[in-house]
Design a protein around this nucleic acid. Structure first.
Lengths: 348, 348
DNA sequence: CTTAGCACTCAACAAGAGAGAGTGCTAACA
DNA sequence: TGTTAGCACTCTCTCTTGTTGAGTGCTAAG
């Protein structure tokens, strides 16, 4: 569906003005502010056409027009010009990521915070899915009397640890022996390949310390089975309250209700269709009945070229698409870099 | 200040009714619902007295009365009867804590969630302050080519790890040597006692691998210096929106604004005066100008008898004190137990 | 095709009228 | 002396009504 040039200009004016003011836009306003070189009456005619084509709608007879979801869609697809980041914004992002960020959790949180701060909407960041990993190393460290720490390192760089109780009879060198046997037998194995036969071998070599071995095995099993639980980091939920569309408490309640349901958010972020580049979903395009008058802009981030997670922004349909799209895209890159640095120990 | 018995009954009726309904309470309501055996007129006289004594107040001339902050205080100190937990509630708490909770972060989060779910207000849980700790063990684990994991175990049971880049020339047995030297020299030391002389010794023994040693030292330093950063887990912010006092968006905004300022919340939870048993602060007793018409109920939790953190509930002054106090107290015990189990590896 | 003019519509606001809840005061009563 | 019934009074809340102004659609002229 192609609109003629003047209709495009009118639609663009309506979208811009409505995004800026949240008020329905009248013909006079457009004529005055956007200088199309024609009178309000002409614009009214164009608006009547646009309304018939369902790009804009009228809240009530004597109000101006607001873009329909289809109108926003047309805007995003054909009319919108990307709005580049300012130097300050890029600078801010770089600075924040460089500062003392040492583990994945911190990066995720920082990302959520930055994303919401820059867009002034609500940010959603899904933790990276590391994928299946295999056993790399186990270490038993004696702590106090009859207490030891089991540490398991996986080859994707995650570390799991747990405190256990051990018989006092176990000596430090016993622990070293246990560690050594485990390491020798299990290195590089995934959960499927840790078979009974192997366990029997280990048991055999270490019969004296059945209890400790059981606990160690349990932690290894947990570590192998553990899908990095996909937590979602939220940022700037609070921002939404500044949007006029959330000036009534009922809507705020529905929104917060939604944001508390992690599983629902996960679905919104992990849908297969949204795995390539920046995806913009407007209003009902978010397949969810509870979320109304909202749009989502999401994009996957990756480590070493493999897509391992998604981040995104949730805002009112009346969102600053041009700006947010750029920000979301930039943030996926920054996040990818930050993660690569942490997970691979490369410089700072 | 002692009130005579009938005045106490009237005050109690007003507090109860207002807590339940959030509506000013009239003399007729009290006479009908709370059967004091006297007529509304008599109750009106008593109410006039109570108002003069500043225990209750009148929002406007033709409305009923509501408790003043002083009224709530009198109620909490003299009139209130503890409301015990139901079997179901105790059962729920026990069940939730028993379920797959393996690390401190998970416990904290679960605590916040339970606390808000049971009280229907907002829960605040401060992470445990482990206190100064000393170095226990270091381990270098070779990962991929030219990449290794450094793991540092502290004697309070925390584990820190970081991925580093290493020269390809380093072999697995080099790493073991480095680990061994570090462990031998540094075990049990706090940051103050790691002196230059010691470092020189280590350097001397391991001159070949200066780069790795530097990185290892850095992580150890970080681990020693790291005050367990005091994060605050929030639960049920959303609950507050169901309270009629937060039916206007401005108040919601102030509240959420406050809840986003971690440092402020930390101050609210860590005040020295609040370190013994359950503390109830009503309205202005919370020394903070931004928080209005709210009360806080907080209590410290401990591990092995040492108080290492605080949890609490924030709600409207019109809070169900009798119930919340019991819940907060019970939760501190449950949390303490859960933490002891995790930190000491005692059974499940 | 564009534009000025004009009648029309409708939300938003303000002012006014009741209704209802609850009070304080007074006077009678136990 | 304490309690109660009766009653006038006050004040919020709600509903109604009138007014204003923004914005439209239509018509006819340029």
């Amino acid at each position: 569906m192609k609109l003629d040039e003047r209709k495009q200009k009118v639609l663009l004016a309506i979208v811009h003005d409505y995004i800026a003011t949240a008020e329905p836009v009248g013909s006079r306003t457009i004529a005055k502010k956007y200088k199309l070189g024609v009178s309000p009456a002409t614009i009214r005619n164009e608006m009547a056409d646009l309304e018939e084509l369902a790009f804009i709608e009228q809240p009530h007879t004597s109000a101006g027009r607001i873009p329909s979801e289809m109108g926003y869609r047309y805007y995003v697809d054909y009319l919108m010009k990307r709005q580049e980041l300012t130097r300050e914004e890029e600078e801010l992002i770089r600075r924040e990521y460089d500062a003392k960020i040492k583990d994945v959790g911190q990066v995720m949180q920082k990302t959520g915070q930055l994303l919401s701060q820059l867009t002034r909407y609500t940010a959603l960041v899904l933790t990276p899915q590391m994928g299946a990993s295999s056993f790399k190393h186990i270490q038993l460290v004696p702590m106090h009397v009859s207490r030891a720490m089991i540490i398991v390192v996986m080859d994707n760089g995650t570390v799991h640890h747990r405190m256990i109780e051990v018989p006092e009879s176990i000596t430090q060198s016993d622990m070293e022996t246990i560690s050594r046997v485990f390491n020798a037998k299990l290195q590089g194995l995934t959960i499927e390949s840790i078979k009974l036969t192997l366990l029997k071998e280990i048991y055999f070599e270490l019969t004296r310390h059945k209890h400790v071995i059981d606990l160690a095995m349990e932690l290894i099993q947990d570590s192998l089975a553990l899908k990095t639980e996909d937590k979602i980091y939220l940022g700037g939920v609070f921002n939404m309250l500044n949007q006029p569309e959330f000036h009534n408490v009922e809507k705020v309640k529905t929104l917060l209700g939604i944001l508390e349901q992690e599983s629902l958010l996960k679905d919104l972020l992990t849908g297969k269709a949204y795995q390539n580049g920046v995806t913009v979903r407007i209003g009902k395009e978010i397949k969810n009945d509870e979320i109304r008058e909202c749009s989502m802009i999401t994009a996957p981030y990756s480590v070493n070229g493999r897509k391992i997670g998604t981040l995104g922004v949730l805002g009112p349909t009346r969102m600053e698409y041009a700006k947010v799209i750029t920000i979301v895209e930039f943030m996926t890159k920054s996040l990818s870099q930050a993660l690569e640095r942490i997970m691979q120990g490369r410089g700072r």
